[in-house]
Each structure stands twice: as structure tokens, then as C-alpha cells.
Design a protein around this nucleic acid. Structure first.
Lengths: 184, 184
DNA sequence: CTATGTATATTCACTGGTGAGTATACATGA
DNA sequence: TCATGTATACTCACCAGTGAATATACATAG
């Protein structure tokens, strides 16, 4: 594992756990076991590091959703609901802190053009595109995304993962009977 | 208007615009036209001020939803959808930055017991309780909340208020046909 | 009806600490 | 000997919170 990878891994861990603003570059360097100067050799700035953190989460995150969907029994509504059930299970872990993409978009609300937000938008679009494919309907895909992201926010606030199951039930119902006949 | 009110008003404006972490106590004092020491005479700490900011938003926010609901034509689904339509209109204003409660809960994720988060949870519960009343079903109320909070997050990320209308359509459908016969 | 005391409200100037980022030097393998 | 990578030790800006003093208003005792 290269030094650069170790730095990114340390950054990702701390950024997710505490938020991108709360974590100092010094703390990341220490966690990675390098000096701050070395960190700045591999990354141009803290903002660069934040962007790299989110870019690195796009694929694994999407792949996880796809695996949960593929491995679930039943028809489309059941498979959609399975994603939420798995999310609820994750959310019961004490280290769970919601969606890193959404949280970063809040922390960087003053900088709408920040590269990390560009990466965040791309990620959410990838999920939406994939859901459009499997549901055959963009509107339904968006409503599922809205339920999921809403659940991230609400569960983080109340620390009550059961909202993810409530969201899953709603998503399953919307997937079972799309508003207008399928139209990707 | 008292000095204390002016400080709180200044804090609320800056906290909503830039986020509670990004705003310095000095900036609030300057905006309020007092010295920092005066600010600390009226508020014990910055955390106190953050809590006061959210506590002050609870009632006005809820009242706004209730007004939008009351003033809308049509049955329950139409009235629910009207709330989202009004939110979408607000979100088109360039100063709109999502939901202050949810954003603060992200910014203070490291401090789950923070008084501002207690105020945030209370507010969301008030909205949920009111929606339970008007829909006659807690599950439906929660799903509407999930759609609304999801839309706050997604619209903030993509800067595309149309997601609020998509959420409104889903909320109307769920309100029109609750999963199980009404049970508050 | 003045002198003294006290509570409220405000100011200026400061501190200890932390933040991101850098100047410079040293190592080491190709 | 040159590019790559790492370290020590720094700069400079900012930030939450404080110490000490002051202004103002209003008591009430002499």
C-alpha cells in the first residue's frame, strides 16, 4: 500500500467519522503516520483530499446497492425494499453517520462549485440512473432516492434506524405501482 | 428591539446562510453591531446561541406549513402537495439553503447531545405529530417527512428545486392511499 | 434633593490555542 | 546527479472565550 493510499484511507476514515470541517490536516497526517509535509507532497490541499475522499466512495457505494438488490428474493418492490433493510442494518452500527456525500454537501454549502460536491452530484446521479434502469421509470427512481436520502437525514437526527424501514415500505409501494406507465 | 434580539437575529441570518461552523462569533457581533464581549454578556457560549437559533425557528416553521396546508384547495393529497409546491417556490430563491435543522444536525454530528440537536428533534417531531393528525396515520406522516427531508438534501446538493415537486407527487399518492386503514 | 450603592449593559484589549499551508534540508534509489 | 519522497520547524491568520474597566439607570439613606 502506497503512502498516498494510506493518507487517503486515513482521511476517509476521519472525514466520515467527524465531518470534513472538523478534521484537521494534522490529524489526518498523524492517523496516516506521516508528517504534514508529506501529506502536502501527495495532495495539493485539504480540498483536494476531500474531493478524493468522495470520488473514492462512488463506485463501492453503488456496487453495494447493486449487490443488495441482486441478492434479494422476490420481485422489484421486494428487491428495492431489501436495499433499505440492509441500510437499516448498517445504520444500527454505532459508527454509522449517515451519507458522506450528503453530509459533505451540507458542510460545503458555501462553495457550490467545490470539486467534492461535483463528485457528490455524480454519485447520486449514478444511483438514480441505475434505479431508473431497474424500475424502468425515472420518476419512480427519483422518489426512491428522495426516500433514501430523507431517511439518511432523519435517522442521523433522531438516531432511530426504523425510519429506514418506513422509507423502504414507501419505496416498495411506489415501485410496485408507478404513477404513469413506464417511461425511462 | 432589544440588544439580545438583535444578536439572535444576526446569528440566525449568518448561521442559516453559511452554516453554524463557518460563522465566527466575531462575525455575529459585527453583524449585530455590538462588541463580542456584549454578545457574551447575553449568551453563555456560541453553542448556546446555536441552540437559541433553532429554538426560535420551531414555531414559525410549523406555522408556515400549517398555513400552506390550510390555504390550499382540494382534498388531503392536494393540500399535502401544496406544501411541497410552496417549498419548491421558496427553494428557487437564491438565498435558500435547505433546512437549517437538518444542516445543523450534520454540522454537529460529533455532539449528539447538543442542545441545538435536541431542538431539531423536537421540531421534526412537531411536524410529524401535526401530519399524523391531518392524515390520520403516523406511518403516512413519517413517509411524508422522509420525502420532504430527502428533498431538502437532494435539492441542496443538485440545486434543482424540481425534486421538491417530485417529492410532493409521491407524498400526495401516499396520503391518498395509506398502507393500512387509518391508525393514529 | 443629594450622595452613595448596586444591577444592568457595554467596551477595549487580550490570551491560549488551532487552523491551513510552507521554506528548507536531508535521504535514497535510478 | 537528479527525481522522488520524507522530516523538522516554521508562518500567519483566525477563533472562542476572558480580564478589567466603564457607562447608565435607578435605588435609598442621610
Amino acid at each position: 500500500m502506497t503512502t498516498k493510499d494510506r493518507i487517503l484511507e486515513a482521511a476517509a476514515k476521519l472525514f466520515y467519522r467527524e465531518g470534513v470541517r472538523a478534521v484537521s490536516v494534522d490529524a489526518i497526517a498523524e492517523q496516516a503516520g506521516v508528517t504534514k509535509r508529506t501529506l502536502y507532497y501527495h495532495f495539493r490541499s485539504k480540498d483536494d483530499l476531500i474531493a478524493a475522499y468522495l470520488e473514492g466512495r462512488d463506485q463501492p457505494n453503488l456496487a453495494l446497492f447493486q449487490r443488495w438488490f441482486a441478492e434479494a428474493e422476490g420481485g422489484l418492490p421486494e428487491k428495492i425494499e431489501a436495499i433499505f433493510r440492509n441500510l437499516a442494518k448498517s445504520a444500527r452500527h454505532p459508527a454509522w453517520k449517515g451519507c458522506g456525500f450528503l453530509r459533505t454537501s451540507v458542510e460545503l454549502v458555501e462553495f457550490p462549485g467545490h470539486p467534492a460536491l461535483v463528485a457528490g452530484r455524480a454519485h447520486k446521479k449514478h444511483v438514480e440512473d441505475w434505479l431508473s434502469e431497474v424500475t424502468g421509470d425515472r420518476q419512480t427512481a427519483r422518489q426512491i432516492i428522495l426516500l433514501m436520502d430523507g431517511a439518511f437525514a432523519v435517522v442521523l437526527l433522531h438516531r432511530d434506524p426504523s425510519y429506514l424501514e418506513t422509507a423502504g415500505a414507501a419505496a416498495a409501494r411506489l415501485a410496485a405501482a408507478p404513477a404513469q406507465p413506464a417511461s425511462t
